[in-house]
């Protein structure tokens, strides 16, 4: 690595590090050789292979999370130059063009840090359970084929189904806060990801039967009314999920549900 580093371009990664939950964080900077097509993950691999800071101090390898390396699993989400996105699809050349420029990497701030750039997104899965984000099929006998889905509904739902639980929409949301204590998760704000998924399943011919229960949850604390319509979620969603449309649709369903509940009991 030493022999190519001098000839080729380098980038400096300024990384916010943390040794474990509750531990203090610190900044460290690493110099990494890059070539056309390098991305943040490939640079992190270079740091892992040679964990020496720009000052020449030997340190521990930087920890990050990743899976698919093609922007479909959401595991590698982090805050790059102040904005949340997937690191695997983050090309260095899109961020810096010069030699030895700096790129800043931080873990997401609305989830507890496990270590360095790796955060624990368990709350997102907890929230999906809160709204029963699935199609209820379990039973003791064969229910036969499900109802047919028309093309328009399928198209509407397809884009919602591409959500990868990455957390971008929550990290950028001014109403979504870090909640380290799971005891608060049943009343703290669920965020846009859940609104998208609630819409996905409320629009499903079979799963629709849970729509009322989902709305009951979403009309309570932490639900749809805690959204402040800043609409950052839809701007940062890497899957271009129409989250603000889902928010409007849930708001409408909640209005109707409240009237029905009031008059029918």
């Amino acid at each position: 690595m030493e022999k190519t580093a001098a000839a080729n371009r380098t980038v400096r990664l300024r990384i916010k590090r943390c040794d474990g939950p509750g531990k203090p964080s610190r900044w460290e900077e690493f110099r990494v050789p890059i070539e056309p097509g390098s991305n943040v993950i490939s640079c992190l691999q270079a740091v892992a292979a040679n964990p020496v800071t720009v000052e020449g101090t030997q340190t521990t390898p930087v920890v990050w999370d990743s899976g698919c390396l093609e922007e479909v699993c959401g595991a590698c989400t982090m805050v790059i130059n102040g904005k949340v996105r997937q690191s695997c699809s983050c090309l260095i050349d899109d961020y810096v063009t010069g030699n030895d420029d700096v790129i800043t990497l931080e873990p997401m701030s609305r989830f507890p840090v496990v270590r360095d750039l790796w955060v624990d997104r368990a709350r997102m899965f907890h929230n999906l359970k809160r709204i029963k984000a699935w199609v209820p099929l379990d039973g003791t006998y064969n229910l036969g084929p499900g109802p047919r889905e028309d093309a328009a509904t399928a198209e509407r739902r397809y884009v919602l189904s591409t959500c990868m639980t990455c957390g971008c929409c929550l990290e950028a949301c001014p109403q979504f806060d870090l909640e380290p204590d799971p005891a608060t998760w049943d009343t703290s704000f669920v965020g846009a990801q859940v609104f998208g998924q609630a819409q996905l399943f409320n629009d499903h011919a079979t799963s629709r039967q849970h729509a009322g229960e989902r709305l009951d949850v979403l009309m309570g604390p932490g639900g749809i009314n805690d959204c402040g319509n800043a609409q950052n979620c839809v701007q940062v969603c890497p899957k271009h999920i129409p989250l603000t449309q889902a928010i409007g649709a849930i708001g409408r369903a909640a209005t109707i549900h409240a009237f029905v509940r009031f008059f029918r009991g």
Binding site: P174, Q175, D177, G228, A230, Q231, Q235
Partner: peptide, 24 residues
């Protein structure tokens, strides 16, 4: 009370709707 539940982040995410959220 509702406004106090928000955390402004218009410098990192300077979108129009986010600025209006803050100004609201």
């Amino acid at each position: 009370i509702y406004a106090l539940t928000g955390r402004m982040n218009t410098s990192a995410y300077p979108y129009g709707a986010n600025k209006r959220y803050r100004l609201q």
